[in-house]
Nucleic acid binder design. Structure first.
Length: 764
DNA sequence: TTCAACCACTT
DNA sequence: ACCCTTGGTTGAA
């Protein structure tokens, strides 16, 4: 028997076994294999169970003789007798799940849809980058695991991450430019290579050399999942050239080449997810094909992978919701529940009135425009992580709302205005999972504030990944397909949220303030006499609010001035999601304005930014107004080159997400015109992918001449200056100016600014 | 002018 | 494989 110690680097399964790559302290990577028999449970009438057992034997799918055992139902909280099946090969699990899926309804199955490697890690109590001591023996040329000992704890906060070797791959030109005319850039910490992609065989040879020389642990790519690896592996298969990409040369894993991704709906928008090309024994992370990397970088992926026990390469492509689900699965398994395979508790029937009460969502108080669009001396107070805190504090979880076990208990807590009951016998799975996440994040946030914190950058990434998990946790609670979701629990959270926001408002009023605006979990308040606000006074208010609501409230800042841009539809009204202001400490905060929008061209955002910077010099609105000509000069400075056609088209490109495949569009909107034109170029843009286009002539009779995509311009024009729709862009520039200034200005005829093509000199 | 399609933003 | 709503722009009847 031999032993090996190291970090769990990579884990995956094939056919019959689980494969683990361990990295020793000296940096050696070694492959181990292990057996794994996933356990699933079935609840069905006796005659059906007998048929099922017969079927499983025929498939040679069982490692043990099935037995009946007692387990607890998650939603119903009662023990039932279920059939325990020990599956002989992990690979069979998805097949069984699919087969059983078709028959679902006649019986309930449990634990069959848990990720195989995660199920293995739960059983062994290990996780990605855990430090392990392994006993093994060499048999059939493999290091077969006999025993695993985990020397670190999944709850560790300040864990060590080994120093990995990274190599980056990306294309020189746009990923949509054919690989016949593109170049691959490869960067290591010491070298930089440029390899033309048209000679595909040569490309593979070169890459093989580089991989042999540098032996990277992490392969970081742009569009590796969508473009690069499908191309590499296709070339390799067609020309029978072996590749050095995988570290694992023993597994006989056949990759099917796929370039088609999937588009799914999330948060009301369509997101595109490319197919995935994980590597065996290295981490392939495509920075363009995952949410967590974009928001929280590598340490964010590592943090979430550890606590959810999802392999790094799976986490890199998963949503934070998936990570949260697996943390909850872990909790549920430890509590001994049968983890539901899909949502089994149907929403209990409700009356129309109940629905009306429940579906209010977050509370919004509109700014009172009687006092104008600009206010001075306003403070913003935020509840920190209100929704997750509500779930933890009030034990809100799908199984705790209107539970059957507390039906006649007079002492239970009731959800305000909805009247739902909350279980007081069981700790909610979601509540428990979130409590840990909140604790971790609080620890990291505190660390970041320590002076001389050398790892601040990495800790910030961990903190940020957890923040996104907490943000999505609430939406997940109401998602009908979530494992741990139930609409009533979602409604309960917002009901508590509204109550707490109202409490905060009343407390602030007791302290002599007026509420000027509020959105879901933050309030904007002003002294009744509009005088200057002191930090000390706010701290006192926050303390009182925390005491009463049991949720921490923080001071976001004190605004010297705060502006609510009026609605363009109704100039007398502000809009809920747009405001901007300058804090007393000089910092600027703007929400919903052009500057914050992805679909405004760089040039116009730059102009608005400069105008805002100008505004931020002033402490009061009166000062600003007295120098109005200065901001107008800034506008003109940007308008002049625009009106002369002197602005580079690259600074005028508009970025948009597509919501449909090319054939799905019903009208010839800009995005529709763009994706259809790209299709003619042989580029298929799937729903959820992003496009960039220039407005050439919006009013053109010929639709094809209205908008031009970036790719079209790049293949047809090489010059920097290109004809663009001056009228359109000048209007957009004006809109971005009006947005921030119209509520402050004494001047009302803004449109005169661009009414003349010759650029009217404007006089005040 | 009016309406529907489409897309982005806030918490 | 995340719920909701609103505001603004655009194309077309």
């Amino acid at each position: 028997m031999e032993t090996f110690q190291g970090y769990l680097f990579d884990i995956y399964h094939s056919e019959q076994k689980i494969y683990l790559w361990l990295r020793s302290d000296e940096g050696e990577l070694r492959l181990f294999s292990d057996k794994f028999f996933p356990i699933i449970y079935i609840d069905a009438p006796k005659n059906i169970l007998q048929k099922l057992i017969k079927r499983f034997y025929e498939l040679n799918a069982l490692a043990e003789i099935p037995t009946l055992t007692e387990k607890r139902l998650f939603y119903e909280n009662k023990k039932i007798s279920v059939l325990k099946l020990v599956i002989s090969k992990p690979q069979l699990l998805p097949k069984i799940t699919n087969k059983l899926f078709n028959l679902y309804g006649k019986y309930d199955i449990y634990h069959s849809d848990i990720e195989i490697t995660t199920g293995y890690m739960v059983e062994k109590d290990i996780y990605p980058l855990a430090y392990l001591k392994i006993n093994y023996e060499i048999k059939d040329n493999q290091n077969q695991i006999k025993n695993i000992q985990c020397l670190t704890n999944i709850h560790d906060l300040d864990y060590e991450v080994p120093n990995f070797r990274t190599i980056s791959l990306y294309l020189e030109k746009s990923q949509r430019i054919s690989l016949q005319h593109n170049t691959l850039i490869v960067e290591t910490n010491s070298d930089r290579y440029k390899i033309p992609t048209n000679n595909s065989r040569n490309l593979i040879y070169k890459l093989n050399e580089i991989f042999k020389k540098h032996d990277p642990d992490i392969v970081l790519t742009s569009y590796g999942d969508q473009i690069l690896f499908p191309y590499f592996f296709k070339t390799s298969q067609e020309n029978h050239i072996p590749t050095e990409f995988d570290r694992d040369k023993t597994s006989t894993i056949n990759r099917s080449i796929q370039t088609q991704g999937t588009s799914f709906n999330t948060y009301g928008t369509i997101v595109f997810r490319a197919p995935s090309y994980p590597l065996f024994g290295r981490w392939h992370i495509d920075s363009k094909n995952g949410f967590v990397y974009k928001e929280a970088d590598l340490m964010g992926i590592i943090e979430l992978a550890r606590i959810s026990r999802l392999p790094i390469q799976k986490m890199a492509r998963a949503s934070t919701g998936k990570a949260l689900t697996y943390i909850e699965v872990d909790v549920a398994l430890r509590m001994g529940y049968l983890v539901p395979w899909q949502k089994s508790a149907l929403e209990s029937p409700k009356t129309a009135l109940d629905l009306l009460n429940a579906d209010k969502g977050g509370l919004v108080f509109q700014a009172d425009i009687q006092n104008g669009f600009v206010l001075e001396n306003v403070a913003q107070l935020d509840f920190s992580q209100m929704y997750p805190q509500v779930m933890v504090t009030h034990n809100i979880s799908p199984e705790t709302i209107n539970c059957l076990c507390c039906k006649n208990d007079p002492k239970i807590e009731i959800v305000p205005s909805l009247g739902y009951r909350i279980c007081n016998k069981r700790r909610g799975v979601v509540s428990d999972a979130l409590a840990h996440v909140i604790e971790r994040r609080a620890h990291y946030k505190k660390q970041c504030k320590e002076p001389n914190q050398i790892n601040k950058h990495y800790i910030e990434q961990k903190q940020s990944s957890l923040k996104w998990m907490l943000v999505t946790s609430f939406g997940y609670l109401g998602y009908r397909n979530a494992k741990f979701g139930k609409l009533e629990s979602h409604e309960a959270v917002t009901a508590f949220g509204r109550e707490k926001l109202l409490m905060a408002k009343e407390i602030a009023e007791d302290y002599g303030y007026n509420l000027v605006h509020a959105i879901t979990d933050c309030i904007f308040i002003q002294k009744k006499d509009k005088s200057v606000i002191t930090e000390k006074n706010l701290q006192e208010i926050c303390q009182t609010i925390k005491l009463r609501t049991k949720i921490t409230m923080d001071i976001e800042g004190i605004f010297s001035w705060l502006s609510f841009p009026p609605s363009t539809q109704d100039h007398k009204m502000p809009v809920a999601n747009r405001y901007m202001g300058k804090f007393a400490n000089g910092h600027f905060k703007g929400r919903g304005i052009a500057l914050r929008r992805k679909d405004f061209p760089y040039y116009i955002k730059l102009a608005q930014q400069e105008m805002i910077r100008w505004m931020c010099q002033f402490e009061t609105i009166a000062d600003m107004q007295s120098k109005e000509t200065e901001i107008l000069e800034i506008f003109k400075k940007y308008d002049l080159p625009l009106s002369k056609g002197n602005v580079s088209w690259k600074e005028l490109l508009i970025l948009r997400s597509t919501s449909q495949d090319p054939e799905g569009y019903k009208v010839d909107a800009p995005s529709a015109v763009a994706v259809k034109d790209l299709l003619e170029m042989g580029i298929h843009v799937q729903a959820g992918e992003k496009i960039r286009y220039l407005v050439v002539n919006k009013k053109s009779e010929r639709k094809g001449e209205r908008y031009k995509t970036e790719e079209r311009i790049e293949t047809e024009n090489s010059q920097n200056l290109l004809i663009y729709d001056k009228t359109y862009y000048r209007k957009r520039l004006l809109a971005s100016f009006k947005e921030i200034w119209i509520g402050i200005s004494s001047f009302k005829d803004f449109n005169a600014l661009i009414s003349d093509e010759q650029l009217l000199p404007f006089k005040f």
